[in-house]
Design a protein around this nucleic acid. Structure first.
Lengths: 176, 176
DNA sequence: ACGTAGTACCTCGACACCGATGTATAGTTC
DNA sequence: GAACTATACATCGGTGTCGAGGTACTACGT
């Protein structure tokens, strides 16, 4: 997820680590902050895989900057990760939002539609947080007000997203 | 989050690891499955901290079961974790849902209200996924349809949850 | 002159998590 | 009779993440 953000941001424009950190923080930091000691090793990993290049530049105000940019391999890797997200990228809302944040880079409307359809299938699957006798329990059947809340909120999210998915898919299909 | 689920489920009734695993899977497994090799070490950790006790029992159909139950310390720890969730438990939806799933065990309506109010404060904070010139960008200003989706869905969720939080808080305040 | 905040990068130890693999029994399917 | 699924537990190596700490320079207030 962090790696996808890095690849996504660097696809838009070359950045140095410190600026990258601020962009990642703006994107998902309010939900889950990422530590510096997580970002820099992640950059090194991606560099080692040959997905990004590092160019030294004199520091504007402080230490010399390492301007990072995607290699051709890095661009291909980004496209691969966007076109074929892992199951967790589909089921976990935070990861899914990260995919969505960069999905426009996938350019091909048909390929974008494939990804949206995977999320659609996931949301259409009957699933819940609470079960009785292996059957999902609806909000109306729960007496615990907090568990009721979980179901009510999840349902509202699910409906809003299904709406959005269906209209966006219609537009993508029309474009393709 | 996993540890909270374990404490929460064991507060309801003693269980052996395998059954615990199924309950955890039912609660959050469709979003983020947890591996066996994560659960068993987690159980050991909690046991080592003195929060749960292990009683051997002949296996019903297979290997001998280890029936797990909360100690008094474990119950106290659960209450502490429910009453004073970490910041990430408040900001991350999956973690927050886990807190909600067991919040009824906190018994005291005033203490429950304190927790809900922390989530309320988090949701009322102006924050977004996308910024231009350090200002949050609204769905209407974005032209990327996928980023628009993120904002539309997040807004729908936020509204549903704010509604629910306010009515539930009113009920809790009336009860206290 | 001193402290603090911001820029810009880095290392290290600790630890949670995971996939792979192992052990053993019982019931079901082909 | 073999293969598979379910029950029930466990270990182990690899890896991602984090907090704490370190380095070094600039700018600003006092």
């Amino acid at each position: 997820m962090l790696e996808l953000s890095i690849l996504g941001f660097l696809h838009e424009t070359p950045l140095h680590g410190y600026e990258l950190r601020k962009r990642v923080a703006a994107l998902t930091g309010h939900i889950k902050p990422i530590a510096e000691s997580t970002l820099y090793p992640a950059i090194k990993r991606l560099e080692k895989s040959g997905w990004l290049r590092r160019d030294q530049q004199p520091g504007a105000v402080a230490a010399p900057r390492h301007v990072l940019s995607l290699t051709d391999g890095g661009r291909a890797e980004l496209m691969r990760r966007l076109a074929e997200p892992e199951p967790l990228d589909i089921s976990n809302e935070n990861r899914w939002f990260t995919v969505l944040a960069f999905l426009r880079h996938l350019a091909d409307p048909a390929a974008q539609a494939v990804v949206l359809r995977r999320r659609l299938a996931f949301l259409e699957e009957p699933s819940s947080f609470f079960y009785a006798d292996d059957r999902p329990v609806s909000a109306e059947e729960v007496d615990d007000p907090f568990r009721q809340g979980v179901l009510v909120i999840a349902r509202a999210t699910s409906r809003a997203e299904l709406d959005w998915l269906r209209t966006t898919l219609a537009a993508l299909d029309a474009a393709a």
